[in-house]
Design a binder for these strands. Structure first.
Lengths: 341, 341
DNA sequence: GTGAAAGCGCTAACAC
DNA sequence: GTGTTAGCGCTTTCAC
């Protein structure tokens, strides 16, 4: 590396475009042009400027650029938490897709708190993000107003509800459960219970419960037992106790993590899965295939969802139009925690 | 909600401070003052302005504010991936701490690619983040130069090496392994092997290997077998085969996910843990306590690390000084995958 | 207390 | 092709 803080810019603070212009003996407009790859710059001049930039170690100020262009080249994302492999995986893909298209990512977690989400939406607007990823379709009116008044382009991921009125990029949580219920019923289980994730303010959890109930009804059945639990193996272990004593012969879990807890409790009770009781999850975390027994579950395309969400946002921005939704498919993965009775 | 797009701001684009000023019949300076809670504004005037703001549905432009104040109120983070529960948990805590202090978070993933990390560091500087979280101490000279020339405040998390020359917020990966090795040796295992995470460009993985080797030497032992594997249960299952056929009686894994794969392969070989062979992990993922057998591992304070990293950055910014490091402690968690022989 | 004016670092017309 | 001139929307002296 060469030494920084050469001549020019004798003052304090970072090197600016003006410093470069002075040093290269051109106008700031020209510097700006080479920076933005304008073709109307003589090669000779371009080179001079580039040298000046290297010499001075100039780093453009993207904030100022954003202000002048009125484009931030930034996407935002507000998710409930990063402590959930599905959201984390989705965000990883979202960020990669955004970056590959020259966009940065501003991220916030709402802790499943609608008021907090509204607050964060406002901040995202203040920060000038050009597109926003939100999770689910349940939110405060205030949030909707904010989104609408600012004409903020956004996608609501992890759900797909044509009636939602917001562009969804995700899958139909209720419908995904149909496949699972059909499978369990086909296997011959009849005393089917469910241990769901907390439904309050979480439309994905609600939809899954509703999907199970609806499909069960379609088969002329109803939930043998029902309970909710927080998102953790430990909580699930406790929460399933009551269901177990109800004599259920199958337990549909709101997600894989809950299923892990259920599996653990079931084993502790000396019941064998899937002979005595079936256990199914939702998400298909990487680990689920390696459990003993391997978990029958629903594969959720988290990576694809994050990527798609970014793409929909980016295309809408690019083409200066409204965001379109995109429906993703889930896929039933039959493994060893269910069996043909 | 009241109707937006009232009178004033007849033009296009969002409502600006100037619109509010015009509407409230004051200067933009005054609007700015009420926005920033300046005490030198008459209550009466303040109220008028606040009403105008509400009326017009004005949302401040944080970008412009940042330009004028030369403070972005934004922190940045560049991590290898979000597809790792430890990083995700750390980022969750980092974001929360940042937000609680009025800072937003700009995030990027480098995919364990040093060149990519350098590129991203540059972007973070361009975006004007006031502090940056990086992972580990291994990076390109180019990255160091960038950091130094821009005088970017930063912390290198997930490691603690007093000799690193960069402010670390984390723990000593090598030393953490000492405890684990001591425990395994104390138990009576002697043919100790290691299945590490990929070391290339990953100083945390390297340190763990080195820690194991050093402590083994201290006990007059050496690695019975050694292999590396990618971060996934599946890869670990395959990678451990060779180690298993070496006749090792204990396997130290680079992290918990690897241990999961090892546990799975060991069982498939009809060996019983911990009687025939011990298996230990590193991280203490939430699931590790619920495995069968429950995994002996090292608890890594990911949440605390993220929070601390944010705090150190924030304090340094606040007090306008260099970032200080902070050493966190790991904790050996003895469970059922090791036993006194 | 409040307003006028001068920027923050950049881009985008518009001249030349 | 290149320079000049206005801003982008905000904060911040500095007068009054």
């Amino acid at each position: 590396m060469t030494d920084k803080r050469d001549n020019a810019n004798s003052g304090t603070g970072p090197v600016t475009q003006a410093d470069v212009a002075r040093f290269a003996n051109v106008s700031t407009a020209t510097v700006s042009r080479v920076l933005n790859g304008s073709s109307l710059v003589r090669p000779k001049v371009r080179e001079t400027v580039e040298q000046a930039i290297a010499q001075l170690g100039y780093v453009p100020n993207e904030g100022a650029r954003a202000l002048a262009r009125r484009r931030s080249n930034t996407l935002g994302a507000i998710i409930p938490t990063l402590n959930n492999a599905m959201f984390a995986a989705g965000m990883n893909a979202f960020e990669e897709e955004a970056r590959q298209n020259g966009y940065g990512l501003f991220i916030s977690v709402s802790n499943y708190d609608a008021a907090q989400e509204s607050f964060l939406i406002r901040q995202m607007i203040e920060r000038g993000v050009e597109g926003l990823l939100l999770v689910g379709n349940t939110r405060m009116d205030e949030a909707r107003d904010l989104l609408q008044q600012s004409a903020m382009r956004h996608v609501c991921a992890w759900a797909y509800d044509p009636a939602a009125g917001a562009p969804n990029v995700g899958f139909d949580n209720a419908k995904a459960m149909y496949d699972l219920v059909d499978h369990v019923v086909d296997c011959g289980y009849r005393k089917i219970a469910m241990l769901a994730a907390m439904q309050a303010g979480n439309d994905r959890a609600q939809q899954r419960v509703q999907g199970v109930r609806a499909r069960l009804a379609h088969h002329g059945l109803k939930l043998h037992a029902f309970a909710e639990t927080r998102y953790s193996v430990q909580w699930a272990k406790k929460a399933v106790v009551r269901i177990l004593s109800s004599g259920a012969d199958a337990i549909i879990c709101g997600n894989d993590v809950i299923a892990y807890g259920v599996l653990s409790s079931v084993k502790a009770k000396a019941l064998t899965v899937p002979r005595d009781i079936a256990v199914v999850g939702f998400d298909d975390l990487p680990l689920s295939a390696d459990l003993d027994p391997a978990l029958t579950t629903v594969r959720v395309p988290a990576h694809q969802m994050g990527q798609r969400a970014a793409l929909e946002l980016l295309n809408a921005i690019e083409e200066d139009r409204d965001v379109r939704g995109y429906q993703l498919e889930t896929h039933l993965v039959i493994r060893d925690s269910t069996m043909q009775l």
